[in-house]
């Protein structure tokens, strides 16, 4: 464990807490893409298949459980909670995310560390995570104004993978045979997708204006 990875995990956890805060405090999920949340729930379920077979550390196990439980709770809440689901922007959240699922799985069958069930699902979760934010970014552009909590949610979610890239660079130079090129390349793509959001987020923060993404 290094400071970059720990900071990344804490930013990831913060993004989920901010999202939970927004949904429970405002009893609203307006501006949140249910499709992105469904994809994230899948990412964690596909990635943490080794939850009960490989014990890494207490921290690792607890964080995996937190991510699985929180992501499924958010999906359940946006679909089932009578008050929250009324504010879901169904007509704006129209990204065809099944393509992202199919493409990620196809790529995982072709490019993986080993052609085994667990490795294919791990690679699938890595590729899917890189593109899972797309429905959310499209929804933000369509809905124009972005409320503070939603903006902070996306910001922390983007920042977490940026810190993971620093973690991979650090591990590359400090550990002998460290090769995580699937996660690294995918992480670069994932962070690049946030580039324009980060730019407009920084502008809105600098000018202290409301965050607006150009349609």
């Amino acid at each position: 464990m290094n400071i970059f990875r720990f900071a990344g995990d804490m930013m990831h956890l913060t993004s989920i807490l901010v999202l939970l805060l927004k949904i429970y405090a405002t009893k609203s999920c307006s501006g949140i893409s249910l499709k992105t949340q469904e994809l994230y729930a899948l990412v964690f379920l596909a990635r943490y298949l080794d939850l009960f077979t490989d014990f890494i550390s207490v921290y690792n196990t607890i964080m995996k459980l937190v991510f699985i439980v929180s992501s499924t709770a958010i999906v359940w809440c946006m679909k089932r909670d009578r008050v929250v689901r009324r504010s879901y922007d169904k007509q704006l959240d129209t990204f065809r995310h099944y393509f992202l699922l199919a493409a990620s799985f196809a790529l995982a069958l072709l490019v993986n560390e080993k052609f085994t069930f667990q490795e294919i699902f791990w690679a699938f979760s890595i590729y899917l995570e890189a593109v899972a934010i797309l429905p959310q970014l499209v929804l933000l552009q369509r809905s124009g104004n972005v409320d503070n909590l939603t903006g902070q949610y996306v910001f922390f979610l983007g920042a977490y993978r940026a810190f993971y890239i620093l973690n991979w660079i650090y591990r590359y130079f400090t550990e002998t045979h460290f090769s995580r090129w699937i996660a690294c390349i995918s992480g670069l793509v994932q962070t690049a997708l946030y580039a324009d959001f980060f730019y407009y987020y920084y502008i809105s923060w600098k000018n202290n204006t409301k965050l607006k993404l150009p349609a």
């Binding site: 990831h12 080794d50 490989d54 690792n60 995996k64 991510f67 085994t116 667990q118 973690n167 995580r180």
Partner: peptide, 10 residues
Amino acid sequence: AKDHVTKDEL
């Protein structure tokens, strides 16, 4: 040896 590299990252 395990059939997969243990993934120690989240």
